[in-house]
Design a binder for these strands. Structure first.
Lengths: 305, 305
DNA sequence: ACCATCGATCAGCTAGGCTCATCGATGGTG
DNA sequence: CACCATCGATGAGCCTAGCTGATCGATGGT
């Protein structure tokens, strides 16, 4: 049996408006006797009379009035919580959306997120996800979606939005032979020991981030893996390793111990995407994708005029 | 049928702690199958899965966790409201105590009221009650208790506390023949047209306030009634009427158009009392009476040392 | 491969939710 | 003042829906 006499409470709430057992019963779809019973039981439960009633007059007791003053908002709140949950369930939306990021966050993304929060009355929780494991956190449900490097060839994943393709840069330490170069060619990479993301990402993805060989077919030296951008940069700064990074990262970086050199032949080969579990697709996530789309469309329009 | 699936809610609350259907059932005194049914129904009601469950593992859905985060406090609050009401019902205490006053309010009374509010977590509503109808507002339940002039010889009323008896004064206008007198005698009152409280108070009470005759037997002139102290003072100030008032009123009065003259022979004949309906006696009111007692005991002790 | 554990499901029982009929109280009316 | 209409309380009784016990299938450990 229930701890809380809800039926009695609902009955009292209506009765307090109608001040008439018959009408109260009609409104609730009960018989008059049921209302009488429910009120009587509630009074027994609370331990005192809540409604003063004769055959001619129904009025709240002073105690009843005070009780109702507290009860009404408390009950309404609880009903609201359940109703709101139903509402959100229908839209499949969450109250707190966890978004994973891999390294860099575009300016446009933060703007879109702000609009997203406002539109959907959600809070956004930003998490950094391992550089070399872009998909497992999504699949494990540790985040609801993530901005990760593409491609994402996995049936269990949906790419909701593809960011504009970006050129790539080679990050090297200040003492590296390439440090003073204004540009390098893909083929030049053969002499660099490239840092690669380490994690459980599928092979095709790792290969897409750090090619195993140059276009001409020469194999590249890849000996060291890192799990965060920060780790990679630290490694690059203090060794002769190199690391491929995308433009947004370069633009937001302010390290003095690392130089970024454009790589000819890798133009537009880096692309981020908003990815989520296909079976967790919700209107909310679609909306976020659309907001990102709009934001980038606006940014592009602004830059061309 | 109830609008709110409380049983399911209670079940979910326990299940979220136990994460085990069997133990949840045990705690609620249900069978395991019942818990399963209740959760399933709640999920149907809300419209989405709240608990992820296999035969080996029970865990809240992300949606379920968010739902619970709102549900738990809302439910607890509602339960609290009902429980608190039960508590108050047991003690017969109200959340808001209406206290009626007739004219003057002692300093000690306000102190006692402050302590009363603090002790019982109640709010106090002070109302002025008609000068000539001290009992009807109490009997009509318009106030929960009142500080009124005694005597109160009514079986339906309880006098919870008797204030210290006070001397009486004759209030007259500045132009009145007595205005400059330092004192008058009861017998002197025969030449004054005394203002009397007008209302539905019983005869014995009116007689006690304004004697019909002096101790020597001479009848007094009583032609005019008033319903508030303010009204009486206004009348006294602008006519040759006189009005008997008690010391606390004199001390708190700062009217320049009325003079107050001590009346020899009426010393200690005015007494206020805290009165309430006998059938509405509560520990709360008894406590208020006790607080008043303590306050006056302290005041007397302070004045004698 | 076997077993123990656990949640889902189904059929069935019965407690309790609910109604109907009736009563007594109340206040208005001629 | 008798009569009547209205309304809430009460008790008997019906039947729904709350609940259980038995069983099944899934899961994970040994």
């Amino acid at each position: 049996m229930s701890q809380l006499p809800v039926q009695g409470i609902e009955c009292l709430l209506v009765l307090s408006e109608e001040l008439h057992f018959g009408r109260t019963a009609a409104r609730l779809g009960y018989s008059q006797s049921r209302v009488s019973q429910l009120i009587a039981r509630l009074e027994r439960r609370v331990g005192t009379r809540l409604v003063e009633r004769t055959s001619r007059r129904v009025a709240l007791t002073r105690f009843g009035a005070e009780f109702l003053a507290e009860l009404r908002p408390a009950y309404a709140h609880l009903v609201g919580v359940v109703a709101q949950a139903s509402e959100r369930a229908k839209r499949g939306s969450l109250r707190e959306v966890r978004i994973g990021f891999q390294g860099s966050v575009y300016e446009e993304v933060t703007v879109a997120l702000r609009r997203f929060r406002a539109c959907h009355d959600v809070s956004v929780l930003v998490t950094e996800i391992p550089l070399g494991s872009p998909f497992s956190v999504i699949l494990d449900d540790a985040v609801d979606c993530a901005v990760v490097q593409l491609p994402a060839r996995d049936e269990r994943l949906t790419v909701g939005f593809r960011f504009p393709p970006q050129d790539q840069f080679l990050a090297v330490g200040t003492t590296h032979p390439f440090a003073r170069r204004g540009q390098v060619d893909v083929e030049d990479l053969v002499v660099v020991d490239l840092v690669t993301p380490a994690g459980d990402a599928p092979g095709y993805w790792v290969d897409a981030q750090v090619p195993r060989s140059t276009p001409s077919g020469t194999a590249l030296r890849i000996t060291t893996g890192v799990t965060t951008m920060e780790e990679g940069m630290a490694l690059v700064a203090n060794s002769d390793h190199g690391m491929l990074v995308c433009r947004p990262f370069v633009e937001r970086s302010n390290r003095r111990d690392v130089h970024y050199i454009p790589v000819r032949g890798l133009d537009g080969t880096s692309q981020l995407g908003l990815v989520w579990r296909a079976d967790r697709t919700t209107p909310q996530l679609r909306s976020l994708a659309r907001l990102l789309h709009e934001e980038f469309a606006a940014a592009i329009a602004a830059s061309t005029t």
